[in-house]
Amino acid sequence: MNALNRRLRMAAVTVLAALAVTACGSTQNATSSGPASTAKGPKVVAASSWEAGFAKAAGATDITVIVPPGVRHAPDYDPKPSDLAKVAEADIVLYAAFEGFAGKIKEAAGSTAKLIEVSLDNAPDKVKAEVLRLGGEFGTAGAAKAWTASFDTEYASLKQKVTGAAKGARPVIVAQAFVAWAADLAGVQPAGVYGPQPPTAGQISELAAKKPQLILDNSAMPGGDALSNVNAKRVVINNFPGQAFDLKAVYTANADAIVTALG
């Protein structure tokens, strides 16, 4: 009987020990699976996916866009009342001066949202400077700095890919004014620039005289059709990120387009 009691006591101790371990394990799992203790960033409303791309690169995570991605010419978009209602709920509103509806955004923002004008230019140095500036505005400077460091690495890789496709040659490129930055992916400066308006007959003659290999046209403001008689391949360059607001993806897609043209 004493032996039986000892066995029962041992079994009870074992069960209690197992329950204690399980309880500790549950506590640890709940802690590790909980949300990270990071400060919530600002609620950002961006006029278009271009500003949204800058915002995401700068570390913003709560981003709403007024102009739907994919709209051919975002600056001419006419915001609906429901679009402007988004502005009223924002902490920060990003816009560009050349956007025709910028005035409506300013009016809708009222006195609560902070309005920040963004310099939209995808030239790498300008992008990095603007991303770091916005990171300072958002309180996400660390994330912005990390993005610019990774961007340098990825851009260098893309540039190597494009210049490799040129096989040591330096292609002659003419470009629409707002996408002239993309010539740097091929390691050159544009031999000629046209726009933002479609080129005149005189400008077409001057550009043709450059004997370009590539014409970089702007997807949002196409004018390259006027250069159809120029013996050069037309590459459509897109400045605007897609649904994911991934600014790096813009460079990848444009680099691939240039590589294909050089192929």
Rank of each mutant, 00 (worst) to 15 (best):
A55E: 03
K114R: 14
V250G: 02
S32C: 06
E89F: 05
V230R: 04
L94S: 07
L94W: 07
E206S: 02
A36D: 15
K210L: 06
T260F: 12
I173K: 02
S82C: 08
V193Q: 01
A209M: 10
R9K: 13
S48P: 04
M1Y: 12
V127G: 03
D125M: 07
P79G: 05
E154C: 11
A97F: 10
N239V: 03
A85F: 01
G136E: 06
S150Q: 14
L227H: 10
A20C: 14
L207F: 08
K128N: 10
S49C: 08
P171D: 03
S228A: 15
T112N: 14
G224T: 03
L158T: 01
A201P: 07
S49Q: 06
A141E: 06
K211H: 11
P69C: 07
I237R: 00
A123R: 12
D76T: 08
G164S: 09
V127S: 04
G53F: 00
T260M: 13
A255I: 14
H73G: 12
G263Y: 07
T27V: 09
A23E: 03
L262A: 12
D256A: 12
A46N: 03
V236L: 08
D217T: 05
V230A: 05
H73E: 14
V131G: 01
V235K: 01
T27A: 10
P79M: 05
A36V: 15
S26W: 09
V87S: 05
T112L: 09
A108H: 00
D217C: 04
A102T: 05
D256W: 13
E99G: 09
D83Y: 00
M10P: 07
V235W: 00
Y251K: 04
A180M: 00
N229H: 14
A177K: 13
T140C: 11
G110Y: 06
H73S: 13
Q160P: 02
D256P: 08
L94K: 01
A113L: 01
L16P: 04
Q160D: 14
P42L: 07
G135T: 06
G100E: 09
S219D: 04
A180K: 00
G242Y: 02
G139H: 01
I258G: 03
Q213S: 13
